[in-house]
């Protein structure tokens, strides 16, 4: 009898109180709980946010080396395509058209330094970031993420500040060649048009165009000490060599 009383007093009663307290509190504060749940759904991500910074001090040579190593992987895996029997690394892309299945390509994430852009004549030599936010344009050339990666067969739009990486763009001429090196291939584009358009001109580019086109743009005019860059300097280039990503 005493044991029963003790069990009642020390275990059953506290548990009963706990159950009733939780039930009453839940009923009383359900609207507030639902509100908090609603806010939590809006604010909570699927996972802990990743604030990992891209390595600002990527060395150019190391990056190109990485690109070349990863490019060999894509070419070696493409066994089914007899046209792509690349036996020798030194075979130029112009001689043999390389096809790479798109499924083998890892689409870059925002902020990834996924390629290298170069124009020897003008001295443009910079990392190409996927994304064109302020923090990326501070470091290199940025790509508009609404455009496509090299080889996709659609326009690729990149930009940089006219006081930094794209300052030499003011000296570009029709016929100049721009090289873009990626992890899956080397691409070359030739300048075939230069236009100065309003920054708000929606006809400056067409992302739906089914043709691979490199569009480089920067603020215009190329003058320092100006905050009024109403215009953009657009350079349009057509692809002359590089792999094709097969969809």
């Amino acid at each position: 009898m005493r044991t029963v009383k003790k069990v009642m007093a020390y275990i059953f009663m506290p548990l009963l109180f706990l159950a009733l307290d939780v039930s009453v509190s839940y009923i009383l504060f359900q609207p507030l709980i639902e509100d908090v749940k609603g806010y939590a759904n809006l604010l909570l991500l699927d996972d802990v946010p990743d604030f990992a910074q891209n390595n600002d001090e990527i060395e150019k040579d190391r990056l190109i080396e990485e690109f070349r190593d990863s490019r060999n992987k894509y070419v070696a895996e493409d066994d089914n395509n007899t046209e792509n029997n690349v036996e020798d690394e030194t075979i130029e892309a112009e001689e043999k058209q390389i096809y790479i299945p798109l499924s083998l390509i890892e689409w870059p994430n925002y902020g990834d330094p996924y390629a290298w852009i170069k124009c020897e004549r003008l001295g443009i030599d910079s990392v190409l970031y996927y994304g064109d936010g302020y923090e990326l344009l501070r470091k290199g050339v940025g790509q508009y993420i609404g455009s496509y990666i090299p080889g996709y067969g659609r326009p690729l739009m990149i930009s940089a500040h006219n006081t930094k990486q794209f300052e030499p763009l003011q000296y570009i001429e029709i016929g100049d060649v721009i090289e873009i090196t990626t992890g899956y291939g080397d691409f070359k584009y030739q300048v075939d048009d230069i236009q100065i358009l309003l920054a708000t001109d929606i006809n400056a580019y067409d992302m739906q165009k089914e043709e691979e086109q490199l569009i480089m743009y920067t603020c215009y005019p190329f003058e320092r000490l100006s905050t009024r860059h109403k215009y953009r300097y657009f350079v349009y280039c057509s692809k002359i060599s590089g792999p094709i990503l097969e969809q």
């Binding site: 302020y134 923090e135 344009l137 501070r138 500040h161 006219n162 006081t163 930094k164 603020c219 003058e223 320092r224 000490l225 100006s226 905050t227 860059h229």
Partner: peptide
């Protein structure tokens, strides 16, 4: 820095 880069300062 981001404000100054396009201005060239």
């Amino acid at each position: 820095t981001d404000i100054l880069i396009p201005i060239g300062i």
